[in-house]
Computed example of a mutant assay.
Amino acid sequence: MKIIILIYLGLISVFVSANTGEQLYKNNCLQCHGSKQQGGIGLPLKLAVIKNLSNNYIKRTILLGRPNRIMPKFYFNNQQIQSIIKYLRQGTKEPIYKKNIKGNSKLGKIVYKNKCAKCHADDLSGGQGSGVIQVVKKDKKVVPPAIGNQGFLQSATKEMIYHIITNGIDGSDMKSAKKMSMSEEDVRNVAEYVSNYKEKKVAENFSEEYTLEFDSAYNFKETIENLEGSIVGHNFRLYKKRYLLQDLGEVNTKQVMLRFCNFLVLYKLLKIEPRLGVLLPCRVYVIEQDDGSVKVLVKNYRKYIALFNNKQLFERTKELLDQFEEIIEDALL
């Protein structure tokens, strides 16, 4: 039962069963990267991008994801991965990279700060946000990726980085080295610096888990009533409760989902990041175990919101998330 619950909560590790590249993409990638690979909450995967990427880079990106970012890791087998790569390539060939790229990392750091940091940040953490930019009056089409993320660095080779800097990406904000007035030596040095970069781990003051689990000292009915009273008492609108797998045609009266929302606050947050809606409304899951004990499961919203990589959003949601945690605490006291 626990496995079913965790999958329903939408955790970051993903299992799949389809085999064709198109179907695998539709089932697992489309919601973030778009029906036409145009991007969304995830980066665009149009041919202009794919033609610069090696098959091995795509494979490792699928398997490793991007730690602490929106992109999860997927548990595909090799055949499924090759099917996705074939689907994304649309008949085009894998790029051929220049070999034996050697540069000076120290000089590359200087060039990077002058030519690249404006978009990718001094610490290579990329732009603020994720994927295609939704908010109007922005000077970029796509949030510059975090090239210092270990998921990227463990997937990209120095040769691939050199290739992309040299050629840029057609139709994007990533200009070629020539347009950025970078010499061939500059490109080699930056590729050396980026490929050897060590990401600095920032300590988070919240749990790393995507799902938080609490034990209730009350019985199943009392726990639900306590949560409902606490939700309303904190000025959230409470929706009609639902059974956990009701939308899948299964009804287990010992697995209940409570949904609630504070529209005044959330309207302001959605103006900062419209895609926050994928997490709404807030939910609490109440589960009665076979032995009669009661568990309360909630998404770790602090962890999920951090994935949007938006400092303004994270700061604005602190008060709301504090209230959310008070709801749980008050109900289970």
Rank of each mutant, 00 (worst) to 15 (best):
I4C: 10
I5E: 15
Y8D: 13
Y8E: 14
G10Y: 07
V16Q: 06
S17H: 11
T20F: 04
E22I: 06
Y25W: 06
Y25R: 07
N27S: 11
N28P: 03
C29Q: 08
H33N: 01
K36A: 12
G39Q: 08
G39S: 06
G40Y: 08
I41F: 03
P44Y: 08
P44I: 09
K46M: 13
A48I: 01
V49E: 03
N52P: 08
S54P: 02
Y57P: 01
R60H: 05
I62K: 04
L63V: 02
R69M: 14
R69G: 05
M71W: 03
P72G: 05
K73D: 14
K73I: 06
F74S: 02
N77Q: 01
N77V: 01
Q80N: 04
I81E: 02
Q82R: 13
Q82H: 11
S83D: 12
Y87Q: 06
Y87D: 02
Y87I: 05
Q90N: 03
T92R: 08
P95T: 08
I101S: 07
K102T: 14
K102M: 12
K106G: 00
N114C: 00
A117F: 01
H120N: 01
D122F: 06
S125Q: 05
Q128V: 11
G129F: 04
S130G: 06
S130R: 11
I133A: 09
I133T: 10
Q134S: 14
Q134K: 14
D139N: 15
K140V: 15
K140F: 15
P145Q: 06
F152E: 01
L153V: 00
Q154N: 15
Q154D: 10
M160L: 13
I161W: 05
I164D: 01
A177Y: 11
K179D: 15
M182R: 02
M182K: 07
S183M: 03
E185R: 13
N189H: 10
N196T: 10
K200N: 10
K200Q: 10
K201H: 05
V202R: 07
S207D: 11
T211Y: 10
L212C: 04
S216I: 07
Y218G: 03
N219C: 09
N226H: 13
L227Q: 07
E228Y: 05
V232W: 01
H234F: 12
R237Y: 12
R237Q: 12
K241D: 06
L244S: 09
E250D: 12
V251P: 04
V251R: 13
N252T: 08
N252H: 13
Q255D: 09
Q255V: 04
M257H: 12
L258E: 09
R259W: 05
C261G: 00
N262L: 06
L264G: 14
V265N: 10
I272P: 00
P274D: 02
P274R: 06
C282N: 13
V284Q: 03
Y285F: 15
Y285S: 10
D290I: 08
G292W: 02
S293T: 15
V294W: 10
V294I: 11
L297S: 05
V298D: 03
N300C: 03
Y301A: 05
R302W: 12
Y304T: 04
I305G: 02
A306V: 05
A306I: 06
F308V: 09
N309S: 11
Q312K: 15
R316M: 15
E319K: 15
E319D: 11
L320K: 03
L321Y: 06
F324M: 10
I327T: 07
I328S: 07
D330A: 13
D330T: 12
